[in-house]
Amino acid sequence: MDAKITLIVNGNERTVVTDPARSLLDVLREEFHLTGTKYGCGEGQCGACTVLMDGKKTLSCITPVVRADKKKITTIEGFADGDSLHPIQQAFLDKGAIQCGYCTSGMILAAAALLKNNPKPTDKQIKEGMNGNICRCNGYTKIINAIRQAALQMKEVRIP
């Protein structure tokens, strides 16, 4: 049976009538056309589908949409403040931490969650905190540089 689900996506209230077992990822992409959140594995192993749910890192591919009902969802589309990039986005640009870029949205959201909990992580803590996110271009070294830079520049992590 379909259910009516209400999500607050990037500050906007959205409703959808759908199967409650459908993944949050599919709803974001197919109902709201927010394609920045990516499918990578469908089993919560790669982090490409990372969003923030009430500020917490969430793997949208294994999250039934019913679990997101009435929750605040932040996706990459809501991350910049108008034309002004979030410092983490800017750090990815500055450090050239992008190859194919398909993992990038998930990386940025996972980095935000990491830095929110630990604003000044060591490299070891960055690796631990980001270990659920796969980059198949294997651009990990520059992604670590970007997260390090973002941590240096931010007094506190703004989560939109």
């Binding site: 394609t35 920045g36 959140t37 990516k38 499918y39 996706t75 990459i76 589309e77 991350f79 910049a80 990039l85 986005q89 800017q90 990815f92 640009l93 050239g96 992008i98 870029g101 398909y102 990038t104 949205s105 940025i108």
Partner: peptide
């Protein structure tokens, strides 16, 4: 690159 970090770029999928 900027379209990648903002997800304005649309991949084939």
């Amino acid at each position: 690159n900027r379209d990648i970090v903002t997800a304005k770029h649309r991949y084939p999928s």
